[in-house]
Write a protein that binds this DNA or RNA. Sequence first.
DNA 1: AAGTCCCACGTC
DNA 2: ACGTGGGACTTC
Length: 668
Amino acid sequence: MQTGSDRSARRVARVMVDSPLPQLDRLFDYEVPEALAGSVVAGSRVRVSVRAAGRMMEGWVIELVDESEFAGALSSIETVVSPVPALAPEVWRLARRVADRAAGTASDVLRLAIPTRSVRAEQAWLPGVPPPVLPPVPAAPPLDGYREQDASGIVERDERVVLEAVPTVVELPSPDGSASRTVGAWALALARLAAASVAGNRTAILVAPDHRDLDQLDAAVRSVVPADRVVRVDGSQSTPSRYRDFLRARFLDGVVVIGTRSAVYAPAARLGLIAIWDDGDPLHREPHAPGAHPRDVALVRQELQGGALVLAGHAISTDAQRLVEIGWCRRVSPARGAAPRVIPTALASGDGADDHARIPSAAWRGVGEALQHGPVLVQVGRPGYSPQLVCSTCSTPAACPRCSGPLGIARRGAAPSCRWCAAIAGGWRCPECDGVRLRQGVAGSERTADELGRAFPRTRIIVADGERTVLAVEASPALVIATRGAEPVAAGGYRAVLLLDGDRMLAREGLRVAEDCVRWWSNAIALAAPGATTWLVGVGGRTAAGVAGWQQSAMASAELAQRRALRFPPAVRVATVTGRDEIVAEAVAALHLPEHDVLGPVPVEGGGVRTIVRFDYQRAGAVASVLRESIVRQAAARRALARRAGRSASSRADVDLRVRFDDADAFE
DNA sequence: AAGTCCCACGTC
DNA sequence: ACGTGGGACTTC
C-alpha cells in the first residue's frame, strides 16, 4: 500500500532536450504524469513538448526531483520513448564537461556517445530484470619488455601513464591451440592491462585509430579475456548489433570495450582503464561537433571517474610528451635492448626520380637477401602509379585545365587524368614555359611495385593502400608495397623493411609534419621481425638519427620545446573562431587576449572570416565560457539577421559564429 | 524552430 | 487614438 504523501509528492523530471540549438543547452523541468511514474527514470528517453518552439522534441531524463525551481507552469512529459536508461549518469557528467570545455552543446556530445536505438536489442534489458554477473577472470600476466617496477600495477594503482610500446611483433597463442596469429606487441600489452582491469571487475576502454589496429587489438584481447567480456563498438557494425553491444557495456560490470574514437564515451559505471593507442594518429580527430579529441576526453573522464589512463604509441605525440613534462603522466619505456635495427641511408647521387637511385645499393642487397626468408615491407608515400605529373621541360606540377586539380596516372599505361575530377587531360599546355609534354614526377605504390617486380622477378608482390586494404600477410616471401599507415601485419614479422619517399614526406609544410613522419616510420619499423633490418632511405639529420637510435621521447621533447618557443599547440591551447567578420571580431574582443595571441582574421571560402586565438591551459575554461556566451547571444539574434538577408537559417552551415577548440588543421 | 510580446511608426 | 509590421526574446 502506497502512502498518501509519496503519491502526492510532486514528481519533476529534469530533461536535456535533444536539440542542436545552443540556447537550449541546459536542463528544463517537466512534470511526470501519474501514468508514467514507473517508467520515467534517470537516463531514459522521453518526448516532451517545447511550447515556445511549438513542437515536440525528444530528450534525456537527467534526474528526478520533488520540486522545480522554475517559477512558471510546468508542461508534462508526453511519452516515454524507452524505459531503458541508456544514458548512464557518468556519461552524462562526461558529456557536460566535454561540451563546456569545447564551448559546444551536451546534445552534440551525447549523439556521439549513444548509438541509434534498436527496439529489438532492448528486449533483454527491460527494467526489473537484473543484469547477469559474469564469472570471475584470473589476474593478467605482466607486460613483456619492461622492467617490472616500471610496468606492474598501472591499473591496480589507477596510474596515468604514457606508455612507449615495445617495437616488435608477437605471436598470440590461440585459445584452441590451432593456428597462431601475429600482432604488434603493443596490442598484447594493452590487452593485458585490460585483463588486469576486468580481473577487478572494472571495465576497460581501448581506443584505436582505425580498423587495422582495432583488428589486432580485438585478437589480442580475446586471447587473454573470455569472449563474454569483450564488447566491440565501431562504425562497421549494423545498427542493432551496435546497440546490443552498447547495452552490454551499459549494464555489465567489468567488460573490455574496444572501438574507434567514440568508444571513449562508452558507459562504464566501474571504470578501471582508458587506453588510447597511437594518440598522434590524425584518424583519432573527431569531425563531429564539438570535435573533442578522444585523448582529451579520456583525460577529463579519468579525472571524473578515476581508473588508469594509458596513452600508448611507438612514437610519442607532443601532446603526450607535454603531459609527462607537466607531471600529469608517468613515462613508461621499454627495458634496454628493445631498439630495432634501423640504418639511415642517403640517396645515391643524381636525379632522385631515377628508378635505381631511389633505392641505394646496400638496401637492394639487403632486400634481396631478406626475400630468401620471408616477406619484406616497402613503405611509400603515395598511392597510384604516378600521382603527380610534371612539365617535362620546367618540372612545374601539372594541373587540370578544368578544375586545377593535380594530374596523375592511376594505373600503368593509363592516360593522364585529374585526381580530383577524373577528367582525362588532353591538350595540356604548361602555363609557365608553354611546354606540351608531361613527365612522371614521384612514384606511387603502383609504380614502385612495377619497378621492384622487375628487379625481383618471380617474387610475389602485394600492394596495400587506402583503396586495397590488406590486414595481414603470410610468412612466405613476398614484397609488400604499402602506403604509410596502410601496412599489413606479417606473420612472424617482416624480414626487412624499406622506408622510401621519406625526403618527400618530410618536405611537406605543416606544424606536425616531423611528428607525423616519426610516427609513420616508427609504426612500420615495429612490424619487423626481431633482428630484421630497416633502411630509412633519403633522410638525414636529426630526425633520421632520432629514429635510428629509437630516441622517441627525446624527439618528442625537442619538438615540444620548439612549439613552446613559438607558442604553438600543444604548448598552448587554440580556438578557431569562424563566421561573419563583425561577429567574429566582437566574439574575439570579448576574450580580452593580448594582441600577439590573436591571429587573423583571414577570409575563408564561402564568405566570412576565421580568427585563431591561443591561450594558456589555465585560461581555457574562461575562454570557453565567454565564447559560449557569444554563441548563445548570436544564436538568439540569428533568425532576425537571416530574415533580413532574405535566406533561411535552417542549416548548420549558415550559422554566423562557429568555434572549434584545438583544431589540428589550424596551423597547417 | 516558431509563437508572442512590444515598440516604433503610420494613419485617421 | 488606434492599427500594423518587424525585430527581439523565450523555450520548463
